[in-house]
Design a protein around this nucleic acid. Structure first.
Length: 261
DNA sequence: ATTGTGGCCTGCCCGC
DNA sequence: TGCGGGCAGGCCACAA
């Protein structure tokens, strides 16, 4: 599903293909998909005649900066893709259908040249917002510092994994990346978030940034080394221990009780 | 304030 | 072989 690495691919696609093309039409056929009080009329008013100048990303949110000034945020849930001129930002998406069907188009910008930027999301778990509040998200996981991580985890009594996936504290980590990061860092997903030693904090920060960067290079959050074992009967690729399967933060969590402490 | 839970959405997989 | 109940999880509303 789209986590930070997939959204980064979408951002690059938008930067490559969608900038500086005057917008002729806004397609917003699904009012449910418009969030934060946004409606189709306000989107048209802000965007028709404008052009996109920049595509930014913070965590799992893609921001399109338009000129005259307007910002559109795109969230992709777990099955959303970005498609520009029929070029998809990523290939297969875990848990999403491979069908490329226009009935799943939830939002679109039609350019004056006839091309199109589309959010294609079968399960409608994503959303579009005009001029969103961007400070609802924590610092981006790709460029996370130790100080930022310390602050994100401070005072937390809940499980470490739940904090890592809290987008308001740390933006970009989803369920698959969280499992992979904690597995690589050798930390239990269940340990209290606020009780890491300075050395563990540094180690975790290294693995967050490193795992994210590697997933971007390798083409997605499903490319981690733990992923092949993330199934019933799966064993730890590092030490062969049968993996534990728990619900942590409401999410299915696969982890190694031997080397994750 | 923080933490936990349920529901939304839909395609697909597994077991009967 | 066909069918239907779970399952997947990002995110939000809500409860404690």
């Amino acid at each position: 599903m789209p986590e930070l690495p997939e959204i980064e691919a979408y951002r690059m696609l938008a930067e490559q293909l969608a900038l500086d093309r005057p917008i002729a039409e806004v397609q917003a056929p699904d009012a449910w998909y418009l969030k934060g009080g946004t409606d189709a009329a306000s989107l048209r008013s802000a965007l028709v005649g404008a052009s996109l100048r920049r595509a930014r990303r913070r965590g799992k949110v893609l921001y399109l900066d338009a000129d005259p000034a307007a910002v559109v945020s795109l969230r992709f849930g777990m099955t959303g893709r970005l498609v520009v001129d029929d070029v998809a930002g990523v290939g297969d998406l875990l848990y999403s259908t491979r069908r490329q069907d226009a009935v799943y188009d939830r939002f679109g910008l039609v350019f004056a040249d006839g091309g199109r930027l589309v959010v294609r999301d079968p399960r409608r778990l994503g959303g579009v917002e005009l001029d969103p509040a961007e400070d609802r998200l924590g610092p981006d996981a790709r460029t996370l510092t130790v100080a930022e991580l310390r602050h994100a985890l401070a005072g937390g009594s809940g499980p470490l994994k739940a904090r890592l996936m809290d987008q308001a504290r740390l933006a970009g980590i989803g369920n698959l990346l969280a499992d992979e990061i904690l597995w690589r860092a050798g930390l239990s997903p269940l340990r209290p978030a606020g009780e890491l030693t300075p050395a563990q904090l540094r180690r975790l920060r290294t693995h967050i940034v490193g795992t994210v960067e590697r997933a971007i290079d390798r083409g997605g959050s499903h490319t981690g080394d733990l992923m092949i074992a993330r199934r019933r009967g799966g064993c730890c690729p590092r030490d062969g221990t049968p993996l534990a399967r728990d619900q942590v933060g409401g999410r299915t969590t696969w982890w190694c009780p031997t080397h994750q402490r």
